[in-house]
Design a protein around this nucleic acid. Structure first.
Lengths: 123, 123
DNA sequence: CAGGATCCATAAGGATACTG
DNA sequence: CAGTATCCTTATGGATCCTG
């Protein structure tokens, strides 16, 4: 399958929304946050994130690489070794994403309180 | 259909990831940014965002309301009038989201340059 | 006008098997 | 090990019709 076929976009959308969707995508968020900590190999990322299929991880990494956020360093050795790291641009994106994720964690208790109130109000 | 059935989550995931997915969801991002500007009625939001179906907009608003980020004010008049606005919590979330969206817009040119380079490299 | 209900197309995502 | 290819299931999202 060509890269262009599995891209998340069906276009016909302002281009910046697309990047936004890439970095805020389910696995994009988690990859960026992990790589902010340090570079990771493919299988390290898989284990660190957990419950991500090889397919989705590969897709996510390729999308982020194409957007210039992630750098892929494939060493020509056997067995293969590929390291992923953030580019300067990717680091900026990851910091924004982490800020949002951090806010979410900090406010989680309030959100859960709101949910209980909402659910009770119509039960 | 019950609210619990269309919720974005299939659970079995750490709860904060869920909130993160709500606020970073395709329409969640756009709704929060619009409401940061000022309160909107349902159909105002539809027009402001563009190309969102009624179903998706309603779903998104309900999810955000349940999470305590959006306040829904339904006036008992005919024809119905419903205003949506941000709660204090929602304003915080929206500001984070807007920061991310702002970064994306500012860096768009760089991302497109990276994409061209990527595509050329394998064409 | 603000949505709920229903039906339908497509896309996201996972499992498995396979390869350099 | 780091993916690709294939098949399959489920979820997302839109169109349409309906109602208070």
């Amino acid at each position: 399958m060509a890269v262009s076929e599995w891209r998340i976009d069906g276009e016909a959308m302002c281009p910046y929304r697309l990047v936004l969707e890439h970095v805020t995508s389910r696995w994009g968020v988690l990859v960026l946050i992990r790589l902010l900590e340090r570079p990771h190999r493919f299988s390290e990322l898989r284990r660190a994130i957990g419950r991500v299929s090889e397919k989705m991880l590969a897709q996510t990494l390729q999308t982020l690489e194409r957007d210039g956020l992630v750098h892929r360093d494939a060493k020509p050795v056997i067995p293969p070794r590929v390291d992923y790291s953030l580019t300067a641009l990717g680091r900026e994106a990851a910091e924004q994403v982490q800020a949002l994720a951090g806010w979410t964690e900090r406010r989680m208790a309030e959100v859960e309180r709101a949910r209980r109130a909402y659910d009770e109000a119509r039960a």
